[in-house]
Design a protein around this nucleic acid. Structure first.
Lengths: 214, 214, 214, 214
DNA sequence: CATGAATGAGTGTTCATTCAT
DNA sequence: CATGAATGAACACTCATTCAT
């Protein structure tokens, strides 16, 4: 029975390394930001040496991109599918989308990297472009699609698509910044539940979109 | 008579040194953030040597604190007076407040240090507490006062005060972040004018607050 | 009968491993020099893993020495025989020798390791001594023999043996350095064919050696 | 008399720093090559810290270029002037040029950086290009000018300009390589004086250039 | 025998801070 | 007061070498 090769220690560890590093990197990027996170610290938190980190990721920037792909791109694309399959009114869809995004992304540790990019994009243009292309654009497109669907079905009226998309995203980003910045987190989080804030905001927006004269 | 010093040009410059450094630091902190701003660059922009900067400010962090103290408190307290003196409905007041805040603070360079503090607060706990106490709390109190006034006058109904205050602040912060982060500025700024966004949002909120059943 | 192992494909490869590594190392040492050649790249080009390289060679330096031993000694000793058997004048012999050396060694990839040793000898004293003993000395002796034969036969006159030997070697080394250094190859190689340069130089030397008064 | 400010310690050192660093860098580049010379070691040899080196030179590569400009470009351009002013036959000029170049450059420590570039050009293309443009090209042009002058004056005949220029440079480079590579230096230098080698070679070339039929 | 995951010392470069002038 | 030369700790990234499998 020892003949059937189960993965040995060496082997098993190897397979888990990237994931462990990604997790450590997520923690630290969220905690300290990109520039202030030292590669060696990421490695240490994952229980490996500095050299090992660079065995799996070409550079700190690539490590970061991998973290983004793993933690931010995924939730966005999940939203795309759900929107396509959603049965119900566009108002319901919009509310559902906002609440689910918060539940699945905004309220998680992963949302900290959105805060991080917004904070440091100016100093790392390449990362900004990456985030722009992989996260912002898809998310905005998704939302505008929903709004346009609502308009063509006569459900939503008298609104500017781009502005309204921003209005939907704004409270999400506000909560994310609040959650991850010690300059804001003590004001918002204790006073109310974020889901309630989102729900209220969603209600407000849908109401506004449904009103006859703008 | 020589006792009463008539300030010479050289003398005046000397006395203005800290102010010039503060201004240079504001520019650079807004542009690059705290960590990425080099002390030498600040000194150079102020027209003095690196050594001189450390003559007036014990450390880069002290310089940072001085910049925050100088630029962040004033705009908030101005709002307090105007609210007290405002003649008109609470809905009008709320809209006025939001637009004026944007005009006088959000749209200026100074708002960049709000972005900067939110971005880097985690790495500078003292600043986070300072910003919380001096900026966030007063602003929130002011807003909640307006909302409560509206409720007691029967103008606003069916709302949670804290949540609604957040809903008012959120678009401001969203715009400030957008304005100062390349991760967001390209999506927002070209699509619409910030004042329009604020106006639309104010309208949405006031409408929502005025609706009979929530 | 199973005792006499018919080399299987896998078996043959195993036995050829060192040779393949040596060849890969030759290529890379010639291309990049010793210090800039990475062990992993050598292994990869030989189609084995990094660990395997260190199975056959204790260290990168040992690999280097093996490459030198394998590639540098042979071409020199071949010249010795031919000189002994040559029929014709010493002038003809000298010209023949110079052209053949270029053809059989200088113009080949192998000459790159001469360039490499000359370039990096200072950082690897053992190799310098080895090259000195195994390559330089025999080559110089061979040449001086030819020159002395020419003098004793009355064909060559009025020359210093050591200096003239150097004069014969100099253009060879010059061409080898030119061929393998981008600092020189663009000036030399496009302007003329190396063989022409050698031929001209040989002609010049033989003419000079044959002139009555120096 | 103490009123007249003589440079103080701090000041005097500053003025000498670049020179001291350049000298230390020359020593080490010649001794170990570009890649193997550590910036910190250069600084240490100049008696300063690593940081100070980068105060005066943007990068190791810039340091190197400065060394080249200081030690290699200068001797070449000196040659240009002298050629312009030379009174005498082109044969005399050519011999003079070769001997002087050896005396003023080849025989000095500075020539080691020519060896160094030839050795490492492949790994540092930018340096190779720099050396090509600043050193090789001017030197070759200078030589070809002399040869053409000789031809137009009827003194030199039946030769290819490029090839002959190479033939003039070759022994110089050969001696430089010999002098600075432990793989060669023990063979050449003890057997003859380099000046004699150069003289003999110069004689050989001039004789060849002056012969009626090639 | 062969692998390739893991290591950690080493390198060029930056920058806040100090201090002699 | 003001300067700017000097420092040295820090950091991302590399690579020869080892060793468990």
């Amino acid at each position: 029975m020892s003949e059937i090769s189960t993965p040995q220690k060496h082997e098993r560890r190897k397979q888990h390394r990237p994931g462990e590093l990604l997790e450590a990197a997520l923690d630290l990027f969220v905690e300290k930001g990109f520039a202030a996170t030292r590669a060696e610290e990421v490695a240490a938190r994952a229980g490996v040496s500095k050299g090992t980190l660079f065995l799996y990721f070409q550079s700190k920037e690539e490590l970061f991109k991998a973290v983004v792909r793993e933690n931010v791109v995924k939730p966005v694309s999940e939203g795309v599918e759900e929107v396509a399959n959603f049965k119900g009114s566009c108002g319901q869809l919009l509310k559902y989308l906002m609440l689910e995004w918060w539940r699945r992304y905004g309220s998680t540790k992963a949302s900290g990297i959105s805060k991080m990019i917004i904070s440091e994009a100016n100093n790392f243009p390449e990362l900004a472009a990456f985030y722009q292309a992989e996260v912002i654009m898809p998310a905005v497109s998704l939302l505008q699609g929903v709004l346009e669907r609502g308009r063509s079905q006569g459900e939503f009226k008298n609104f500017n698509t781009e502005q309204t998309a921003m209005a939907v995203i704004a409270p999400m980003l506000f909560l994310i910044m609040s959650k991850h910045s010690s300059a804001l987190c003590h004001s918002g989080s204790k006073l109310m539940k974020p889901e309630d804030f989102i729900a209220q905001h969603a209600e407000l927006i849908v109401r506004g979109l449904s009103v006859e004269n703008a």
